[in-house]
Design a protein around this nucleic acid. Structure first.
Lengths: 226, 226, 226, 226
DNA sequence: TATGAATGAGAGTTCATTCAT
DNA sequence: AATGAATGAACTCTCATTCAT
């Protein structure tokens, strides 16, 4: 009856605006996926968020888009972590600090790990990489210039070190939530100068992206995320 | 030693055609699971093998049993790898050789990686561990006695190094099938004596088993492999 | 009493279309199960109702829940029958009327007979018995007080008389839909005072419930209704 | 080598002749079906008999034929029971004795009950009836001539009384194996002269056969016994 | 002839996605 | 815009029956 959008009657539920529902869904998805992995159903996410599934599909074209949004948030965090790392005085501690910060998040979130290991959309993947490649490259190069990281290390190595530590977290997060730190430390030894020659070349940024994209498509085929 | 053609396995000799189908199924399963992971359906495996689903279920009580058979084969191979490693003169090269051999297999087989990372049956898991723990411990201890591996390394570290290299293979196997070698080399640097103190204790053998078992159960809940 | 159109059932009001489909499903289930017994598939019930299987599973968690809903309706009817019987002036005619009314329903519905003979869920069974035991006991005791039923009859005898008449209906309902009346009459002769001593004690209410529950479990093992 | 059929070498298994296997299968089927009902699989029966399924299908065209053979045996027993009943001096005790003997068998054999309630083959059914109708009719008529059974009872009533007592046994055989005797006694009261008029005519022998046959076909449609 | 391996239709159930309300 | 009911393909597993050995 009124032209305002404010609720007039107490019995009519508040009209939640879209942004609020979007946040609710993302928060619910994070919680649900963190605990149960990406195989949790969208119904469960929606229920957790207190909205209908239909609403989820209004905000996200499909399950993957929702996962994607989660990833964007995680990437935001990683970018922030990276900026903090660049602000650190010691380049080595900066690198280590970045990895620890990024992994501290991921080690607690199964859904995030699965999402980062299995991005299902090339375009999205490009965006993620576009945002991270600069900071990560700078963190690494700075450490190399300081002589604390071997010269043949490449930015994609950082990506795979994260991948590896995530794998440990995947297996051990319930029993030993901090175990990934042990293996991150081992990998970091391998990053220090003076080690043996590495038997295979690092991927270029381009190859890394393609690898990720191919991997996802392999995952997507036959997976519930299509 | 015997002149009979009886199968070497202790169980009842399989009829010729049945044995053939069993092999067809295992081969098909390996191929299908290698490419698409364990979430591929048994129908697809059977189709790939050129047999009906029913046949698959005659040979393997359920999907997991089939995966389990695949794993048994893989564990056989790993045990053989481990024995070769112990026969090597140089303890370090033995250790490295074992890891490279084991990973060369797994890097090409996504299903195998998923199976080993996600054994869904506690009993089977125990069997796998029972067979591998001895040889792996001996490989490691020998290298430690020779002073080429840091003293605080534990057998479970070998397990997690395999886990990590598999994670790399998971992502990159299509584009860069040998990339895992780069990161295995990095990890091996971390295994050499003289590195920084590791920030978290290795799991004991028992904890490792429990971690694996818990991980599986988490995976199994809601997964197609129940 | 209220002017709202809210449903009388205490649970959340179903959306109009959903309520319609629920009714369609129940009607279809009654028809299909009535004709073909409980072994008819849910796909067939859904097809008969003109909805997808998924819809059936939205309304009923599993096949048994659907059967259960059917049973609840039938028990409602039986309770109503029992109340009418208690309102009858002649205690004997009340008893007979109750049995005839109850059996008139069941004789036409094979699914209902199977459901009542084979309740697969202990809790549900308890509910059914809880609702029926009072009225039936009262009907019987009133007739006994009036001296028209033998003193050693027990409420569980009523249950078994229904069981027996149902068995006749099971066999003969197609060819002779009223034949059960003949054998109900025979059983009723056995209920009248003055007959020979009965060679086995009636079950107590507790034993009757346990018998039913055990029977169901035997049926359920290996049956499609688990 | 020898022209005898006796085994010559200890290692070669005795050549079981067909008759022996047939008996083994029937015995196994009786046991298995008695315990688990007709839904037990033929594989299980064959395993129990120590032969292959193929052998079962050599002797019986399908599952139903095997059940049918079981029934034949049971009918043999019933015919023998009937003959003993006719030899009894007291016509009433003869009738009662026949029913008790027949039911004592059936009450212990779930498969037999299911088979008799659900004969799936018209021809077989005819055979069963052909063999039983004479003796049963004679038992009944003799009792009627002696004035101990009501004049409007028909041979098919005997069939349905068995049906009814079987239904009781079906439900209660685990908890109260003798309970059917109570309800048989009640039915027998209804058979005695002097009761109320029965509200529906007994089936004729022809109708009884048709009822059974129709019933079976209904059961068979959609049932595992096709 | 006996065997048991192979078959494949069909059952119950789940869930990403669509669409009427 | 929000809801959640509806959809139907897909998955695992069973078993009566057939057929190669």
């Amino acid at each position: 009856m009124s032209s305002t959008t404010a609720p007039l009657t107490a019995s009519r539920p508040l009209r939640k605006d879209a942004a609020r529902n979007r946040e609710l869904l993302i928060a619910a998805a994070r919680e649900v996926f963190a605990k149960r992995g990406l195989e949790a159903s969208l119904d469960e996410v929606a229920r957790h968020a207190g909205v209908g599934v239909g609403t989820a599909y209004r905000h996200f074209a499909n399950k993957y888009e929702l996962v994607s949004a989660l990833m964007s948030n995680a990437v935001d965090d990683m970018v922030a972590d990276a900026e903090r790392a660049l602000a650190a005085e010691d380049p080595w501690l900066g690198l280590v600090g970045f990895l620890e910060a990024a992994l501290a998040d991921q080690s607690e979130d199964r859904g995030l790990r699965e999402a980062l290991m299995g991005v299902h959309d090339t375009e999205k993947l490009e965006q993620v990489h576009d945002r991270l490649v600069g900071p990560i490259t700078e963190i690494l190069r700075r450490a190399q210039r300081a002589g604390v990281v071997r010269a043949d290390a490449e930015p994609t190595d950082i990506g795979f070190i994260i991948t590896m530590a995530c794998a440990v977290a995947d297996v051990a997060s319930d029993c030993a939530p901090q175990l990934w730190r042990r293996y991150l430390a081992m990998c970091l030894e391998g990053l220090k100068p003076g080690g043996a020659t590495l038997p295979a070349a690092a991927l270029t940024e381009r190859e890394f992206r393609d690898a990720m994209a191919t991997h996802k498509q392999a995952l997507a085929r036959g997976s519930s995320i299509s």
